[in-house]
Design a protein around this nucleic acid. Structure first.
Lengths: 336, 336
DNA sequence: TTGAAAGCGCTAACAA
DNA sequence: TTGTTAGCGCTTTCAA
């Protein structure tokens, strides 16, 4: 396990170590002959440059921090997949951490990233409060927020237009003939949820519909909580023809509760989700939903961050992507 | 963005920088008074130790490489979640990479990990061939293979007992009354698949059943391929009462094809999976399956690796965990 | 209890 | 074209 260093190679080749460094890094000012000889020798000696030492000198680790709340969540793991691809294509690797949706943990991880000297961090925030919690830490390292809309905060973020997505969702259901649409699962403390809810209300107003909401009173969003909420809901008489779920995970919970209660989707009830997580595409589920373009979100986040890093831009950018409705089989047209 | 270094703090405190270092690292041989004063000053100055410089000196990055084939795969993202948790609890962070199930990529990533000087790597191999492809690289960095069974190779791994799991699966179906069980989706180039298939055959022999197999001829395993394979299968008359799918993803593809064909599960056909990915637990799916204990696999992989690193053990360990059957709703008892 | 100094492995400015 | 040398920010002997 003894590591071969640049010195060992230099000694063996009978040159100085700057020559070896030049040969390896492809810098100019070295004869092709020497370079070839040295590169060859490096192979033979199993020499691999020490990236830590290089980071030290270059003041760049070529590492990006990725802080997510929970990598086992399919929405986040899909984002992570694309982020890694894009980052690697540009010569960076990813240090991954889970904040467990705790502001405290998140802050600790952020400090860790600073001390690890990653070149920048992509943050899928634990809550919309994250921005203020992180406060003084933010200027110390290039950061882009992903997924959460920070409104006009002076910090880079990329997110989908949640307001518009919700608006489009209502529009879609309206055109299918639905007039009584329940909005399901809004959670406090998330600007994403707030915007979606606002979009829903605006669309209702525009189409002359009476808004009706069932909020999520739990701390986070998951299939389980969606299920529990839906159980309460279905205990009451059903005075709506469609449910617009704040997230796909909520929708999945609704499906489960409906199943148990003998409510058929979409025959008795139409269901629309938001996010387009992969599970929604599964057989027997076929969830119709508002899509977040995950690949695009990921690559824009990386590009946005690298712009900041490589061009040392001190400004910030807000990028808002447009969602779209993905039709599958949980919504149907009705005549009322 | 100018970084505050230990020197700045030392200057401000009017002490040498070794004193600051001692104060921060909690080493002995420094008066409580000075320590308190310096710690206080560090806070005020926003000093954060540079982990890269420390790695340089300590010859340890406190970083673990995690190479998976595809983090968006739910089985792997769940493992990654637990791995991060366990690693962080022990003071390490994770550098995540996707090999895209390419041996070539995987090798490149492995070299990258060596050059990044991560303290060790956890590898979810692209293929069973990975072990030999990596060959000469393996001795250069502590590694543990996760998920794939390396038989008696002199390298650490932790995996589930795939042979036994398959055996148990057949046993389970047998007790439900099934006598004609089709094994579905074995893929070449994976020792995991080979062992499961062997277990299936052994159990058939033990119970006097005639083995019957449909192999996956694609390069990898996914819902899509499972679906295509199942389409072919269902074009033929059905002379079996249960399918044992090599993986849950295969099973999900089967469900889809069955759905389209009007084959009811479990009324017309029982279906058993393997892995217990989270999607299987979804409403309307309720896949009965052989479970891999993911949390345990993850923490054993981390512990196994850290043992190797921290105790500088040069040996290796093989850890095989026992799977179990998770009953949900895709299998039923029959009388034949 | 504290300070001085060496050195981790590398890059780059400057000399030769 | 190549070599010499000064750091990068830190930890850790060894002396004081």
């Amino acid at each position: 396990m003894k590591q071969v260093t640049i010195k060992d190679v230099a000694r063996a080749a009978g040159v100085s170590y700057s020559t070896v460094s030049r040969a390896m890094s492809g810098s100019p000012g070295i004869s092709e002959k020497t370079r070839a000889r040295i590169v060859q020798l490096c192979e033979e000696m199993n020499y691999t440059a020490n990236a830590v030492a290089r980071s030290m000198v270059m003041k760049s680790t070529k590492l990006l921090g990725l802080i997510v709340t929970d990598i086992s969540n399919p929405f986040m793991s899909e984002l992570a997949y694309y982020i890694d691809g894009q980052a690697r294509a540009r010569g960076y690797n990813i240090v991954l951490c889970n904040s467990l949706r705790s502001l405290e943990q998140e802050r600790g991880l952020f400090e860790l990233m600073i001390s690890r000297k990653v070149d920048g961090v992509i943050l899928l925030p634990a809550e919309s409060e994250s921005y203020s919690t992180l406060g003084a830490l933010l200027p110390r390292i290039p950061t882009v927020f992903l997924g959460e809309n920070l409104k006009d905060a002076p910090e880079s973020y990329v997110a989908v237009d949640n307001y518009r997505g919700a608006y489009m969702g209502v529009e879609y259901l309206y055109k299918l003939g639905h007039r009584r649409i329940l909005y399901f699962g809004k959670r406090r403390g998330s600007s994403t949820h707030q915007l979606r809810s606002d979009g829903y209300h605006a669309a209702c107003e525009a189409y002359g519909l009476t808004p009706r909401c069932l909020n999520n009173t739990f701390m986070s969003t998951s299939i389980k909580y969606g299920y529990q909420l839906a159980q309460q809901l279905f205990a009451q008489p059903m005075d709506y023809t469609a449910i617009f779920a704040a997230t796909d995970t909520n929708a999945l919970g609704i499906i489960q509760a409906a199943e148990e209660r003998g409510i058929r989707i979409p025959e008795d009830l139409s269901l629309l989700g938001f996010d387009n997580i992969r599970d929604g595409a599964l057989p027997r589920i076929g969830l119709t939903t508002v899509e977040q373009p995950k690949k695009l979100l990921a690559s824009m986040a990386v590009d946005s961050l690298l712009d900041k890093i490589e061009n040392e831009q001190s400004g910030y950018a807000h990028r808002i992507l447009t969602p779209s409705v993905v039709e599958r089989s949980t919504c149907r047209a009705i005549e009322e």
